[in-house]
Design a protein around this nucleic acid. Structure first.
Lengths: 330, 330
DNA sequence: GTGAAAGCGCTAACAA
DNA sequence: TTGTTAGCGCTTTCAC
């Protein structure tokens, strides 16, 4: 029984007689043998590593702020567990979005780790430099939060739809002036959320004049944006914020001004991170199925590695609206 | 200029003439060359991988519950960034504490990844099976939340001290009957926190009869424990809960019974996860410097790998008390 | 101070 | 179906 036969059993090749497989497998189990992924990789096989690429600056800021943003946790929940089911491992890597050496950083990570796949998260998902590089390297990768087709698998939580259902919920309970606080322009999803809101407003024959403000996902920017909306000559009776921090900022701005939520103003948040259940009132929010999307991304990559045909794209895992106490009839 | 010289430069060996080093380095930078860690590992060098071992069940439960527990995030913040500074990578691994094949699981992870170091977190930190195995494998490892000496580096946030200062704070503002909700017995820190509370009470010549209840860190267990304390013939005027979920449960139990916090009952929490700032009132809490401890753990492991002398242990990074609105004079 | 040779644990390609 | 050979990209050891 040669070394090679063992290798074949481990790699589940079909060209081994069942009884040989059984004997080898028995020995493997008995000895608790597990192949070294470094050696497997060296032998020209997989590295069994998938890299999850996240924005360094924002991720670190979220961790330090300790505001309960659980994007990474949800990615790990969906991504890591799915990886484990297939004998893969997920490694979190942080790269600077705005650095002019993204290519360097990414190439370094790829050269060092030689991952079999990469998962891109916003705002990297539609970064042409990154997409081109990964494509050129022949690495299979998934783009979370992207609708563009092209190289890599596009997965989306359908931000436009999410913004639309949030808006429609508000319109449905009688609001006519629904304000919207957008996210930063370097996130493609920011534009899509604006579109969804605008589409719903337009479909209801409502004007959006003076109802759009821009933030950068930070709390302070949310304060500024909320103030801008509330200071308008004809202020909104409801506001949708593109993420929880800006929603929290809006809530606080209202509190400071004596505007009661939801009595005087309804508020809908995006992301549904843990804190929004603990505010007063708890916030109605768009819930992003991050774990599910990450799991799907891993599944797609592993299937691709196995030579399977990719499914039609983009893969859509729709966000849902969670109703809580921050919205009420106008 | 041979391949070997390049290897020497990469590994910062001293036996290379400065100008040769410079020439090689220049070429490396120009080409953006980065060595493959798989090949480095195969060559008999490091893997540049450090594994952070966490309890599977609890970690997944926390992720799914979406209650803002940011233990893993803080570990990544401290551990991953410190790793990155030294060219290492941190890989999160989940293993079942109560499984009878912990050894198998751990050995499999070690065989597959061949990490240079391992970071143990509660409740693994003092698991004799794991400690013995790691020691036998000659892997350098750190035990977070452990006071025992023995193999591996012990790091602690001094749970006893933390419980003591929490208790003393309450005693200092006039409380005499300070109840304590302990964590599960398989966490060594649970006992230490009890000790700290008891020590402070005893030092103040106060009785602890009927003032101790036990939970398992879960919300429901916190409800039961809080109820038990409040139902006592002589109920406490202040309660310290061993983690945030049990503190939240206590808060809710009080609310349901019409007990005003902090007017009728003062409440102190352990962990200081994000949600405790958003409750009403926000909770006074013991803050665990997890990021700092994780960073120290990584530093210790990497120094050990470099052959440096280990510092005296346990390494103590004290937790601190953050005052908020849930505590008031008796 | 630098180069050459051997080998790490595995797999792909080929031979039997 | 199984075994053999070569080589992945590095680092170690030893020679120069």
């Amino acid at each position: 029984m040669s070394l090679q036969t063992v290798s074949r059993v481990i790699n589940k090749e079909l060209s081994v007689r069942p009884d040989t497989t059984a004997r080898v497998q028995e020995a493997i189990d008995r000895l608790g043998y597990v192949p070294s992924i470094a050696a497997q990789r060296m032998g020209g096989s997989r590295s069994y590593l998938i890299v999850a690429l996240n924005d360094r600056e924002r991720t670190i800021a979220d961790w330090q702020a300790r505001q309960g943003t659980d994007w990474i946790d949800q990615m790990l929940l969906g991504g890591m567990l799915t990886c484990a089911e297939h004998g893969y491992r997920l490694i979190v890597e942080l790269v600077d979005t705005h650095s002019d050496h993204i290519e360097r950083e990414l190439m370094a990570a790829i050269a060092a780790l030689q991952p079999d796949g990469v998962i891109l998260t916003p705002p990297h998902s539609e970064n042409p430099l990154i997409v081109r590089l990964l494509d050129a390297q022949g690495i299979s990768f998934a783009r979370i939060g992207s609708l563009q087709d092209g190289a890599g698998f596009a997965l989306t939580m359908d931000d436009e739809h999410a913004a639309r259902i949030a808006t429609e919920h508000l319109l449905g309970i009688g609001h006519k002036r629904v304000g919207f606080i957008a996210g930063p322009a370097d996130y493609a999803l920011s534009g899509r959320r604006i579109n969804g809101w605008q589409a719903a407003m337009t479909a209801a024959a409502l004007d959006v004049h003076d109802l759009l403000a821009h933030g950068d996902f930070s709390y302070p920017s949310g304060c500024v944006a909320a103030a801008a909306l509330l200071d308008a000559s004809e202020p909104p009776t409801a506001i949708i914020a593109s993420n929880d921090q800006m929603a929290l900022a809006t809530l606080e701005t209202c509190r400071a001004r004596g505007i009661a939520v939801p009595h005087d103003l309804s508020l809908v948040s995006f992301d549904n991170t843990p804190v929004v259940r603990f505010t007063h009132p708890p916030l109605t929010a768009i819930d992003q199925p991050i774990a599910e999307v990450a799991a799907r991304a891993v599944t797609l990559i592993i299937a691709d590695l196995a030579g399977k045909e990719p499914p039609p794209q983009p893969i859509i895992v729709p966000a849902t609206l969670v109703l809580r106490g921050s919205t009420a009839a106008c």
